[in-house]
Design a protein around this nucleic acid. Structure first.
Length: 466
RNA sequence: GGUGGAGUGGCCGAGAGGCGAGGCUCGGGACUGCAAAUCCCGCUACACGGGUUCAAAUCCCGUCUCCACCUCCA
């Protein structure tokens, strides 16, 4: 259990893996950029949730008290645009997709955050932060209702993405005549006719895209916190701008930046505009949540995951093997395997969450555990099933986790067990008198009901086909 | 133009100077009345061209290909 290693994580800012040193010993504060609730989640969105859920579970298992903030951005350009398109109010659209994200998180066993602040609930904090930036001379309100951050004045702008201000390609946004520099970005946007707005000293308006994260991180995690996470595509501009705002306001902000890679199809990033996005609820018609989670967890969080249904199916089959072993182990032991964190698991996860290494280890344990089942060696079964269960619990795919239980099937299983057992007794009798034709006929009939039979060393076992 | 990432066996997918990660598929075997499940054995790969080194998938130089970000992005 005790590992000599310490948790090491890759930091986007330093581009290095180094030891995680929390601000307060034994505590970890994490801010994850969550959903902008403008459409249903696709598997890429949920991969991000899963990757950081694994981080969180590992920190908790390592003894940390984790404060995990994952925001919901429920007001932005796209939400207003899409609401017009669907012909419903912007707040109805935002709530609709927030629920859809929550359904996906729940189906994939992503732990609920410690707190989940919504942008619309933090206008006061955002306006206060912008006021502070204006007072410090870092931001300016040119009188069109917008407030911009003056990026040239910042000494460390673009250090996260290691770019130079003058190398950025410029895109026209129609606000050039108000901006002191075309690269300045909007902290606050003046309201156009018919748009939602909130009153401010600079007129009615709504937040720019980035300010909510700075304001909410400050509100719940304070001026400095341990880890800020999100997808790779948030490095620029979103996270750069969060840093810019927060540091200009005098706050230290995040100590460590972690970014997950995308889910791709045909080598390309998943996105609505490409028409290649796979919605979570669609994929869940094909495999169970626990299997989808296993698949999305299987690549290292910093590696692209090339999505294919073939790979998904393969992952699901592989997972069922592990799951079946755990169920057999529970039967053999007459108790649910305990969660025992092995050194191998600790070492792998401490090394920047090396999940693929964990999977390789699980394969080894699975062989040893299955050997234990064949030789009826309970101690061996207990040992390896415990290691496997511990690994699965950190990955969020522990089949014994109540989050995955379906109560209705549990009620039925007793009755089904009785019925199947009756048939199996008949088959055993037929086999005993070497009437294999009759025995196979019974097996075929049971099989036709979607139930498979295994003749094992310790008796006959049946299971419902997944 | 700038910045970052990737190319590994039939497929997926780790590793980052020295014992062939692991999985899937495929072939062989054990067990079994036959299956199923499980286990055992086999299948010596790192885009290309140079270089450094006793030793390179890993380091250096060059080349090719692909992907991403540059104010909508997980």
């Amino acid at each position: 259990m005790a590992s000599v290693n310490k948790l090491c994580l890759y930091d986007t800012a330093s581009r290095q893996v180094s030891e995680f040193r929390p601000l307060k010993p034994g505590q970890a504060s994490i801010y994850l950029c969550g959903a902008t609730v403008q459409a249903s989640p696709h598997v890429g969105h949920i991969r991000s949730g899963i990757n950081f859920d694994i981080l969180r579970r590992w920190l908790i298992a390592s003894g940390y008290r984790v404060t995990f903030i994952r925001n919901v951005t429920d007001i932005d350009d796209k939400i207003i645009h899409n609401a017009g398109h669907e012909d419903i109010p912007w707040w109805e659209l935002a709530m609709k997709y927030e629920r859809s994200f929550n359904d996906a998180y729940r189906a994939l066993n992503v732990m609920a955050p410690t707190y989940e602040p919504r942008a619309t609930g933090h206008m006061t904090q955002m306006i206060e932060l912008i006021k502070r930036l204006v007072e410090k001379g870092s931001a300016y309100a040119p009188g069109n209702g917008d407030v911009y951050l003056e990026v040239r004045k910042l000494k460390s702008y673009l250090t996260l993405s290691s770019q130079k201000l003058d190398d950025l390609l410029l895109t026209k946004d129609g606000e050039e005549k108000f901006k002191r520099d075309p690269r300045d970005f909007a902290l606050w946007k003046g309201a156009k006719e018919g748009e939602p707005s909130w009153p401010t000293p600079w007129g009615n308006g709504r937040p720019g895209w980035h300010i909510e994260c700075s304001a909410m991180a400050l509100a719940y995690l304070g001026q400095e916190f341990d880890i800020h996470g999100g997808g790779l595509d948030l490095i620029f501009p979103h996270h750069e701008n969060e840093i810019a705002q927060s540091e200009a306001a005098g706050y230290k902000f995040a100590r460590l930046w972690m970014h997950n890679a995308w889910v791709t199809t045909s080598g390309e990033k998943m996105g609505k505009s490409l028409g290649n996005s796979l919605q979570v609820d669609e994929v869940l018609k094909r495999v169970r949540g626990i299997e989808l989670r296993w698949y999305l967890s299987s690549a290292h969080y910093r590696s692209m995951l090339e999505f294919s249904f073939e790979a998904l199916d393969e992952a699901a089959v592989a997972f069922r093997r592990i799951e079946n072993f755990l169920y057999r182990a529970r039967e053999a032991l007459a108790t649910t395997p305990e969660i025992v964190i092995s050194d191998e698991l600790s070492d792998a996860l401490d090394d920047d969450l090396a999940v693929p290494q964990v999977l390789a280890q699980i394969s080894e344990w699975l062989k040893l555990g299955n050997n234990g089942l064949s030789s009826l060696d309970k101690a061996q079964v207990a040992e390896y099933s415990s290691y496997i269960r511990a690994a699965l619990s950190i990955l969020g795919t522990d089949p014994f986790d109540p989050a995955y239980s379906s109560p209705s099937s549990a009620d039925l299983s007793g009755a089904v067990d009785g019925l199947i057992s009756l048939l199996l007794e008949q088959r055993s009798a037929a086999r005993a008198r070497k009437d294999f034709a009759a025995a196979d006929q019974i097996r075929d009939q049971i099989s036709a009901m979607g139930i498979s039979i295994e003749d094992r060393a310790d008796g006959v076992r049946w299971s419902i086909n997944g």
